[in-house]
Computed example of a mutant assay.
Amino acid sequence: MGGRAPLFNFTVVAETPTDEDAFTQGFFYANDTFYISTGNVPLPGTPPASTPPDTSSMRRVEPSTGKVLRKVTVGSSHFGEGSTLVHDELAMISWRTQAAWTFDPVSLAITGNWSYEGEGWGIAWDGDEAVYLSNGSSTIQVLHPSNYTTGVPVRTFEVTNAGMPIRRLNELEVVCGELWANVWLTTVIVRIDPVTGRVVGALDMARLLTRMTEAGVWGADKRESGSAVLNGIAWDRGGRPAAAAAATNGTEHSGGAAVTAPRLWVTGKWWPRVFEITVDDPAVDWGACAALKGAGLP
């Protein structure tokens, strides 16, 4: 069974603004852009309304400024949840209506509809053979990217730490071959072996809340709402040619061509900041992540 997974430290590399009115449910990086999907929770202090606000959306966001480049809503009858890139299209799920959508990654035009059984919380693609879907329990469904829009899993697995189920798994991201998940209502991210479901490490982001509060950038109404929790992991595994990479955050191949280095960001619901972080885990060769194949299928 083994002992509990270790807790790893992290370092904040940079922080950038983002729309603090966005109830962030899904968060990922692709095409040099942040993609953020949001839910339709009324803002604190908003007068009660007969219908929920039409704020469940898919957004393209400029990473350096937090500027929303484009936004498409999916209707107030749906509570938007997680999102991811699958091949050349975006996928977004909803909470309890079993409704899901695909989008063009540039225009954000809705290109299709699909569904699945149960609740939808988080979704992530490993870039290879697995699309992961969470539902707020300790169980992860694994769909195949060639037919994930059928909503039929090829397998499921339970996430455990020292043999104990880890429930309330929320937003997902595949990071350097591991499946990472926010644990709802906590400041914890768990790092999961996507084959066995075993938690192999964890991060506690509590000091990010203190950092935003002490900087005076986080409104008390949101901060004290109880809903503005950690929720959002975005990963750029790097390895792409970039003319300026050697002068900024890139590395050099033996042939001399500059490539981008891996980058990792976190954020939360109604958070005013996105944080770029590095994780202090000497057992992981973060620079080699670009060469990794996806994992998750036997």
Rank of each mutant, 00 (worst) to 15 (best):
W265K: 01
P17S: 08
T139H: 03
Q25P: 06
V106Y: 12
D281A: 13
V274Q: 06
N40K: 04
T196I: 07
G66V: 05
N113F: 15
E171Y: 02
L108A: 01
G216S: 09
V175Q: 04
D285M: 01
N113R: 15
T196C: 04
T267V: 12
T156R: 07
P262D: 14
N9A: 15
P6R: 10
L208I: 07
R96F: 08
T16K: 11
W125H: 14
R59V: 00
G45E: 11
A257R: 13
G219C: 00
T210G: 01
V131Y: 09
A295Y: 08
G255E: 12
V188A: 04
R263A: 15
G268T: 07
V190R: 00
W184M: 13
Y116G: 03
P48W: 00
P105V: 02
V279T: 00
I110E: 11
W265V: 05
Y148E: 09
L143P: 06
W114K: 09
P272V: 02
A30S: 12
G26T: 12
V72L: 08
A244Q: 13
R155K: 15
T278F: 07
P165A: 01
V274P: 06
G112T: 07
V199N: 09
G163H: 06
G75Y: 06
N182W: 03
D54H: 01
T24R: 12
D204Q: 02
I36Q: 11
R70D: 11
G136V: 03
V74T: 05
G296V: 13
R237G: 06
D128P: 01
N40E: 00
N147H: 13
D285P: 00
S115N: 10
F10D: 04
P17L: 06
T97V: 04
H87R: 15
T196V: 02
L172I: 03
P17W: 05
P145Q: 05
L90V: 14
G163Q: 07
S57R: 13
A124N: 06
F8Y: 15
S107H: 08
E178A: 08
S254F: 11
K269F: 09
M205D: 11
A290I: 01
L264W: 12
M164F: 10
S57H: 12
A257T: 13
L69V: 12
Y29L: 06
Y29D: 00
G232C: 06
R223F: 10
V61F: 04
S56T: 02
W114C: 09
I140W: 07
V12W: 00
G2D: 15
G39I: 02
G118P: 05
T210Q: 14
T84I: 03
G66E: 10
N31V: 01
R60D: 09
N170S: 06
H87T: 14
A243E: 13
V229T: 12
I166E: 05
Y132G: 03
V175D: 02
P52S: 10
A246D: 12
T73S: 12
T150Q: 09
G3L: 10
E15I: 00
I110D: 02
S56V: 00
I140Q: 05
R273M: 15
A124V: 08
N9C: 04
V259L: 11
F34H: 10
G26P: 07
